[in-house]
């Protein structure tokens, strides 16, 4: 079963007189419960693809079917609600709010989902314990190592039980040890049935995933499955 289907997606930008096709009639689908990586050189359109998949951006044309619904032309508010409820983000630079504690950071999506403080806190504490940060619930991001921060971010991505987890170069700022820890967490999540899509430019990380999609010039040039 496909959790995401992209059909004939085009994303173009006007650059002066010419038009840049960041995504050029791309058709691809993602099955539920798979750990997929997207690779490609810089400028290949993988970041744009990530933004479209993560509902941060709308395609110029084409269909984006998320869990059976075409959301390609959703309004800004509808996209915001979709991001909130169905998508968990893990960024390269963590993107945690430095003034908030780990628990508050993890609970942030629940604030926008309208969940009460008590339930939010309970769920955030549980999520942090699940990623092995039970001892650092009330620390702020700057009191944690990079690996720990990324684990907070993963807990935040998971808090609302999303359909997919989008990871954009999640280990780009981490040392080897932390990188392996994070990949390990993704693999565990995948075993629990989560769908994970990771953008990376490190071939050895891509090798650890079940499917590698290679993008170049906004088009799918290679789709390698390793089951």
């Amino acid at each position: 079963m496909n959790v995401i289907e992209l059909k004939d997606i085009v994303k173009s930008y006007a650059m002066g007189d010419s038009t840049v096709m960041a995504l050029n009639h791309l058709t691809v689908s993602f099955e539920k419960g798979k750990f997929t990586s997207i690779v490609g050189p810089s400028g290949s359109g993988k970041s744009t693809l990530m933004n479209v998949l993560g509902c941060l951006d709308r395609p110029t044309s084409g269909q984006y079917i998320l869990e059976g619904k075409d959301i390609a032309q959703y309004s800004d508010d509808e996209l915001a609600h979709t991001r909130n409820a169905r998508i968990g983000f893990v960024f390269q630079s963590f993107n945690l709010l430095s003034k908030l504690t780990a628990v508050e950071n993890v609970a942030l999506p629940l604030v926008y989902a309208g969940v009460g403080l008590k339930e939010r806190t309970e769920r955030a504490e549980q999520a942090l314990k699940d990623v092995g940060l039970g001892a650092r619930l009330y620390h702020k991001p700057n009191e944690m190592s990079g690996g720990q921060r990324q684990r907070v971010a993963i807990a935040r991505a998971l808090i609302n039980d999303p359909a997919i987890i989008m990871a954009d170069e999640p280990t780009g700022n981490l040392d080897t040890k932390s990188t392996l820890e994070i990949i390990d967490i993704f693999e565990k999540l995948n075993k629990m049935g989560k769908t994970v899509i990771m953008v990376t430019h490190e071939p050895e990380l891509a090798d650890m995933t079940q499917r590698i999609i290679t993008i170049r010039d906004g088009q799918l040039i290679k789709d390698e499955r390793r089951d």
């Binding site: 800004d76 508010d77 915001a80 991001r83 909130n84 942030l108 926008y112």
Partner: peptide, 16 residues
């Protein structure tokens, strides 16, 4: 700006 971006990515709407 970055904080606003994070909040929006996590589902904050225009009105939030």
């Amino acid at each position: 700006t970055r904080e606003i971006g994070i909040r929006k990515a996590l589902g904050a709407t225009y009105h939030d």
